[in-house]
Nucleic acid binder design. Sequence first.
DNA 1: CGGAGGTTTGAGAGGCGTCAACCTCCGTGG
DNA 2: CCACGGAGGTTGACGCCTCTCAAACCTCCG
Lengths: 260, 260
Amino acid sequence: MRDDPTQSDQTDGEVARYPQTGRFLMGRGRTRMTPEERRVLEDTAMAVKDYPARHHLVRRGEPVDSSMMLIEGYVTRYMDDREGYRQLVSVHVPGDFVDLHGFPTGRLDHDIGTLGPVKVALFDHQALVGITERHPTLTRFLWFATLIDAAMHREWIFRLGRLGAEGRLAHLFCELYARLEMVGLAQDGQFDLPLTQPDLAEACGLTGVHVNRTLRTLRERGLLTFKNGRVEILDHRGLCTTAEFNSDYLYSDCGVWKTS
Amino acid sequence: MRDDPTQSDQTDGEVARYPQTGRFLMGRGRTRMTPEERRVLEDTAMAVKDYPARHHLVRRGEPVDSSMMLIEGYVTRYMDDREGYRQLVSVHVPGDFVDLHGFPTGRLDHDIGTLGPVKVALFDHQALVGITERHPTLTRFLWFATLIDAAMHREWIFRLGRLGAEGRLAHLFCELYARLEMVGLAQDGQFDLPLTQPDLAEACGLTGVHVNRTLRTLRERGLLTFKNGRVEILDHRGLCTTAEFNSDYLYSDCGVWKTS
DNA sequence: CGGAGGTTTGAGAGGCGTCAACCTCCGTGG
DNA sequence: CCACGGAGGTTGACGCCTCTCAAACCTCCG
């Protein structure tokens, strides 16, 4: 559990010092934030809340006056089509400032819900206005965080537009592993992912049935297994190739997945 | 040419006063920017440059120290897959701050190129730092602008994940009409669009051949025509239905396309 | 023990891709 | 003035990937 001294210790120490925001931008230039900026951000968090699995957090269109940073668990953002079929537009991991974009926009154009049980920290928008007035550098870090989301959106567009079923699933697993690894929540190609096969289908523009067949193919090719909410990557080189995955878009500064 | 007094006059007056940035956030809360903020932004523009059609503007990965606002013409952002097939991730119209996201991030995760001939205004990142230090409200407007791009990305994910060929093309045309109409560059369901059928295919995750067949279907259904870079929407209600289009995500404050 | 949700597998249909041919348009150059 | 070439548009034949519909099975849990 503590075999990896450098990464895990660094992660744990930071999370101990900043229990609510310790994973924010970790692996992406968090180290370039000053201790004061980290402290200001941590102290801006208002309340910590827990929510159960499969719980609605924000509905499309409703005005928002606070934003959530994810501390533990997984959250997804999604949109429904006319017949009620979902399309996930993002999956969030601890350290993500899930709906910070609601601060400049004032409302959201999509729904937000939990996957597994989660813990989030709330940030009042009034307090964020204070940050933009007194801490321009920290403001640019926050802005940057919302732009990483945009970069991931672009990659999802690429995935849906240009890859087949195998590539789409492989790409999703590559992305999640890279992101979880950055915040110290994945090691040795393994990580938890509280998704069902229909959930994966909604993320990849496929049907549950076809996801099932495609997962079998990936398993038979020796690339990965996915069972009971646990992902085990067996051949990450091969998985990256199938996914046409290049982690540049994650703006990581410690990437082990630089597979240009 | 000047049949629409309200919209066109408003547009023209604003563009006369702010020749480089007059269309920025037009139809999206530009009116909530103070005259001083508009002036500061206009005066921050360094140089105006012209580029020919089908010209590379920025390459993936290279460091950037300035950003472009589009004044005239069309620009696209795109990514290439392993075999060189493109996926467009956005199409930009005048008033768009095309690569403002390069300011907080310092580099881009995709390529940018012109479609037709364009005119752009350059903004030095050093000058933008100055804005974040002295104009927090204007900073939030700039941030907001980058988040509209993210909202459009999400809608593109939905389009590719959940719609068939007809819906994808219809959705793209709905979006472009709504955006061009906001900045005074589309009326009566008509607008210019310097794209080929293969270009549309790259935007919609289809092949050129299938785009051709699908355009014919849309034409036969009496929804729209697309010929020689000119779009004519014949039945926008029907087009919106086919596209499952709802313009909320464009954050317009004057939308005629509110088709919940 | 029974039911619900998720997983797995099969059979058949359809949407979109691939390959190929031919067309028009238009700029270039002999 | 006409020949030529290239890019984009159009249409047809065929095949594959993915969807749809269906049923069986499995596991968890009340």
